[in-house]
Computed example of a mutant assay.
Amino acid sequence: MPEVLLDIDHVDVTYPARGFRGKPFQALKGVSLDVRPGECVGLVGESGSGKTTLGRAVLGLAPVTGGALRYQGRDISHLGRRQRRALSSDIQVVFQDPYTSLNPALTIQDILTEPLTVRKVAKAEAQRRVRDLLDQVHLPSDAGSRLPREFSGGQRQRIAIARALALDPALIVCDEPVSALDLSTQARVLALFKEIQDRTAVAYLFVSHDLAVVRHLSHRVAVMYHGEIVEWGDGDQVTTRPQHPYTQKLFLAAPVPDPAAQERRRAERRALAAATGL
C-alpha cells in the first residue's frame, strides 16, 4: 500500500458569481492534508467553515480551482464522469441524513445490490454479499426484504454504511454521519465505524462539527476556519490540548455533565471570544 492514500495539496475551491452583481466565492483557500491507508482523519469546523466542501471536492462534487487532489499518487482533481464512476469502487461516502440518503421506494436488498449490479456481480454472489453486509453492520438477515421507512435513524445509517462498504473501498468520506442521531445512537454508530475500520483497514475522512465526536475515531485531526486549516496534528493533542484559539473555542463548546464545570466553560468561551474576536 502507498504511504499516502489521499493527498490534498493546496486545494482551492471557488464557486462562480451568482447574478449580475454577484462575486465569486472562495470556499477553500490552499487546504493541505493527507490520509494514510487504514487511518481516520477528522475534519472539524463550524457550519460554513468549508469542511463539507472539502469532502465534496474529494468526491468530485465541488470544483477544484487550484492545487491538486491525488489518490494513490494519481491526480483526481478534474476527472470526467466515466473516470469518476470507476473511482467509486475505491472512494465511497456516508451522508449526514439517514432519512434522505436512502431511496424510499427500494427495499434494503435492492439498495445494497445496486452498486454490485453496476459492477456486473452475479446475482447469487450479490445476494451473498448483501447478507454479509447486513451482518457487518449488525442488522438481521430479514432486513433485506424491508423498506427504509421501517427502520430507525440509527438503523438507516447502518444501512448507508453497508452500502458504502459494498464495493470494498479503500477510503470512505463520512459527511457528518452521526449529527442527525441522538447521543446514545451516536455512540453505537461510532463504535460500528471503529469496529469496521479495525476489521477492514478502510480509511476515513470524517467530517464533523464536534471535537468530542472525532476524538473517538481520529488518528489525526484538521480544524477548518473560513476555508483554511488552522490546526492539524495528532488527534489526542488537537482534541484535548488545542493550541489555536478557534480550536479552543470548539473545545469549550462541548458540553460536560458537571453543571459547575459547564458554567466555567461558558465563561472561558465568552472570554476567549472577546479576546480573539472568533
Results as ranks from 00 to 15, higher is better:
residue 4 V to E: 07
residue 6 L to F: 00
residue 7 D to Y: 09
residue 8 I to M: 04
residue 12 D to P: 02
residue 12 D to M: 02
residue 16 P to Y: 09
residue 16 P to E: 04
residue 20 F to N: 06
residue 21 R to G: 15
residue 25 F to K: 14
residue 25 F to C: 07
residue 26 Q to W: 01
residue 26 Q to G: 09
residue 27 A to E: 05
residue 29 K to L: 01
residue 33 L to W: 02
residue 34 D to N: 14
residue 35 V to F: 03
residue 38 G to W: 00
residue 38 G to M: 02
residue 44 V to C: 09
residue 44 V to I: 05
residue 48 G to K: 13
residue 49 S to L: 01
residue 50 G to E: 00
residue 50 G to N: 11
residue 52 T to S: 15
residue 54 L to R: 12
residue 55 G to P: 11
residue 57 A to G: 14
residue 58 V to N: 12
residue 60 G to R: 00
residue 67 G to K: 09
residue 68 A to G: 11
residue 76 I to A: 08
residue 85 R to N: 01
residue 86 A to T: 07
residue 86 A to I: 04
residue 88 S to E: 06
residue 90 D to M: 06
residue 90 D to N: 15
residue 96 Q to C: 10
residue 98 P to H: 11
residue 101 S to R: 13
residue 102 L to A: 13
residue 105 A to F: 07
residue 106 L to D: 07
residue 111 I to M: 07
residue 112 L to S: 11
residue 114 E to K: 06
residue 122 A to R: 15
residue 122 A to K: 15
residue 125 E to D: 13
residue 126 A to F: 03
residue 128 R to D: 08
residue 129 R to A: 14
residue 129 R to E: 12
residue 130 V to A: 09
residue 132 D to G: 06
residue 139 L to A: 08
residue 140 P to V: 12
residue 142 D to H: 15
residue 150 E to H: 14
residue 162 A to I: 11
residue 167 L to E: 09
residue 184 S to Q: 09
residue 191 A to S: 15
residue 193 F to D: 12
residue 195 E to Y: 05
residue 197 Q to G: 10
residue 202 V to E: 04
residue 207 V to G: 03
residue 209 H to I: 05
residue 214 V to L: 03
residue 220 R to A: 03
residue 224 M to P: 05
residue 225 Y to W: 02
residue 230 V to N: 06
residue 235 G to V: 03
residue 237 Q to P: 00
residue 238 V to H: 10
residue 238 V to R: 03
residue 248 Q to S: 03
residue 250 L to S: 03
residue 253 A to F: 00
residue 255 P to G: 10
residue 269 R to Y: 02
residue 271 A to I: 05
residue 276 T to C: 04
residue 276 T to W: 05
